[in-house]
Design a protein around this nucleic acid. Structure first.
Lengths: 152, 152
DNA sequence: CTAGAACCTCAACCTATATTGAGGTCAAAG
DNA sequence: CTTTGACCTCAATATAGGTTGAGGTTCTAG
């Protein structure tokens, strides 16, 4: 019988349980905890125990990440959840709405870039000063890989 | 008269010139050079001089980055350009085609995620095991912010 | 009761993409 | 000929998001 099962599907999960159920590694959960994205209580033996809410929180975190939201921002959004009660479906939906808007912006940006690329393929104009893809003031310059955020 | 102008718009550009014209910083160009993305010759005084081709190369690099292509991959694509002659418009177009496909894949992925998010908003189902957004095997799991590439 | 699995902390390391700074050289304008 | 700005190298720092490992503790099945 695993330690996981020893928790008897009650209200608390060990870090290993949570990792298995949430599909992330134990070290990732430790990391999230240090970043304040999730919280735990401790057993007498100093082991973490997570409430079932955390399962949903982690799910939400992963989805937001897929949508391109950085952890710091996810944390802010989660911090804004009403304390003192388990968040409701409506609470989560509210978060989703905001992230969906961001996601849509990202998609629009990339689509715009693709359209320009479509227009430029074949013309080989990338080095010409009037090529839209080279326009330094282009709003799209803010879009791109996550690493790009460092320049913002 | 700046050193830039001292190059008299001939075939060589100083690193400062290139930076100004390409819209990137000098340190970024140094960095690209160490990564083998661009190359330079040196003057007697050990200063870099770049051919005009490099202007186009840098433009291509920035566009590819916006499309979400990591530098290492951009380097590979550039390495595949025919050596011994200045790349033609057709050469650049070929690169663009490949990156456009990647960009389209990214867009499709994010759009799929958005559609799922649309479906889930309001239902608050993110923690339910049958929620498509939580499906660990989801192909979308490979998509997301640039930082995510580290896990691939 | 004991072995081994799972847990703990803390620090170091990793990738990607640069930026910043220290200390020194070079070149051209005045 | 001096001063100033652009250039050089190399190392350290930064961010985001984790992973890995050392060294030690706890828990639970047998």
């Amino acid at each position: 019988m695993s330690k996981a099962q020893s928790c008897k599907k009650l209200h608390s999960l060990s870090v290993g349980d949570l990792a298995a159920r949430a599909g992330v590694s134990v070290s990732t959960l430790h990391f999230y905890e240090t970043k304040g994205l999730i919280a735990s209580t401790r057993t007498g033996g100093n082991q973490r125990r997570f409430g079932r809410d955390v399962l949903r929180r982690v799910a939400v975190i992963r989805v937001a990440q897929r949508a391109g939201v950085p952890l710091a921002e996810i944390r802010q959004a989660l911090d804004a959840l009403p304390a003192r009660r388990t968040p409701t479906a409506a609470d989560w939906a509210k978060l989703s709405e905001g992230w969906k808007a961001q996601l849509e912006a990202r998609i629009a940006s990339l689509t715009h870039l693709k359209d320009q690329l479509d227009g430029c393929i074949g013309c080989g104009c990338l080095s010409l000063s009037d090529c839209p893809l080279r326009n330094p003031g282009d709003a799209l310059a803010k879009e791109g890989p996550g690493a790009r955020l460092l320049q913002g």
